[in-house]
Amino acid sequence: MKNKLSDLNNHLFEQLERLNDNELSGEQLAAEIERAKAMSGIATQIVNGTKVVVDAMKLVHRGDAPSVINKLLGEGLS
């Protein structure tokens, strides 16, 4: 899979456009709302996962990664 965050952004804007369709009503609108909720949940997970990666990259860049890893694993704690 070769998706990027820009693809996610495009999908979310496409979903927004579908929700803004004045011709949708009843079951069609309800289905789009459910679809939007599902997309929002998945998008949140993708963004949160990306934030973890960026935060880890910052730690590595600053040279703090080993001490943070040790704390997470419980090593070096008194």
Results as ranks from 00 to 15, higher is better:
Met1Ala: 10
Met1Ile: 13
Lys2Cys: 08
Lys2Pro: 05
Lys2Arg: 15
Asn3Gly: 04
Asn3Cys: 10
Leu5Tyr: 02
Leu5Thr: 02
Ser6Arg: 09
Ser6Tyr: 07
Asp7Val: 07
Asp7Arg: 02
Asp7Glu: 11
Asp7Asn: 11
Asp7Gly: 12
Leu8Tyr: 06
Leu8Glu: 01
Leu8Trp: 02
Asn9Pro: 06
Asn9Asp: 11
Asn9His: 13
Asn10Gly: 00
Asn10Tyr: 09
Asn10Thr: 11
Leu12Val: 09
Leu12Gly: 00
Phe13Gln: 14
Phe13Asn: 10
Phe13Met: 08
Gln15Gly: 04
Arg18Ala: 07
Arg18Ser: 07
Arg18Lys: 10
Arg18Trp: 01
Leu19Pro: 00
Asn20Ser: 11
Asp21Pro: 03
Asp21Asn: 12
Asn22Ile: 01
Glu23Lys: 14
Glu23Ala: 07
Glu23His: 03
Leu24Asn: 06
Leu24Gly: 00
Leu24Lys: 00
Gly26Asp: 08
Gly26Ile: 02
Glu27Tyr: 04
Glu27Ile: 01
Gln28Ser: 13
Gln28His: 01
Gln28Val: 02
Leu29Tyr: 11
Leu29Phe: 05
Ala30Val: 05
Ala30Asn: 13
Ala30Pro: 05
Ala30Ser: 11
Ala31Pro: 00
Ala31Asn: 06
Ala31Gln: 06
Glu32Lys: 05
Glu32Thr: 05
Glu32His: 05
Glu32Ala: 12
Ile33Met: 08
Ile33Asp: 00
Glu34Trp: 00
Glu34Ala: 13
Arg35Tyr: 01
Arg35Gln: 04
Ala36Glu: 04
Ala36Thr: 03
Ala36Trp: 02
Ala36Asn: 03
Lys37Ile: 06
Lys37Asp: 13
Lys37Cys: 07
Lys37Gly: 04
Met39Leu: 13
Met39Asp: 04
Met39Lys: 03
Ser40Arg: 15
Gly41Pro: 03
Gly41Thr: 07
Ile42Asn: 12
Ala43Lys: 11
Ala43Phe: 01
Ala43Trp: 02
Ala43Gly: 05
Thr44Arg: 09
Thr44Phe: 08
Gln45Asp: 14
Gln45Lys: 14
Gln45Phe: 10
Gln45Leu: 12
Ile46Asp: 06
Ile46Lys: 10
Val47Met: 07
Val47Ala: 11
Asn48Thr: 08
Asn48Cys: 08
Asn48Asp: 15
Thr50Met: 08
Thr50Pro: 02
Lys51Glu: 08
Val53Phe: 09
Val53Ser: 09
Val54Arg: 07
Ala56Cys: 11
Ala56Asp: 15
Met57Ala: 14
Lys58Arg: 11
Lys58Cys: 06
Lys58Gln: 12
Val60Thr: 04
Val60Tyr: 11
Val60Lys: 12
Val60His: 09
Arg62Ile: 05
Arg62Ser: 05
Gly63Ala: 08
Gly63Pro: 04
Gly63Glu: 01
Gly63Met: 00
Asp64Lys: 15
Asp64Gln: 14
Asp64Pro: 02
Ala65Ser: 12
Pro66Glu: 12
Pro66Ser: 10
Ser67Thr: 03
Val68Leu: 15
Val68Lys: 12
Val68Phe: 13
Asn70Ser: 14
Asn70Asp: 15
Asn70Met: 14
Lys71Tyr: 13
Lys71Ala: 15
Leu72Tyr: 14
Leu72Asp: 15
Leu72Val: 14
Leu72Phe: 14
Leu73Pro: 06
Leu73Lys: 15
Gly74Leu: 11
Gly74Ala: 12
Gly74Lys: 13
Glu75Ser: 11
Gly76Lys: 04
Gly76Gln: 10
Gly76Pro: 10
Leu77Trp: 10
Ser78Lys: 09
Ser78Glu: 04
Ser78Tyr: 00
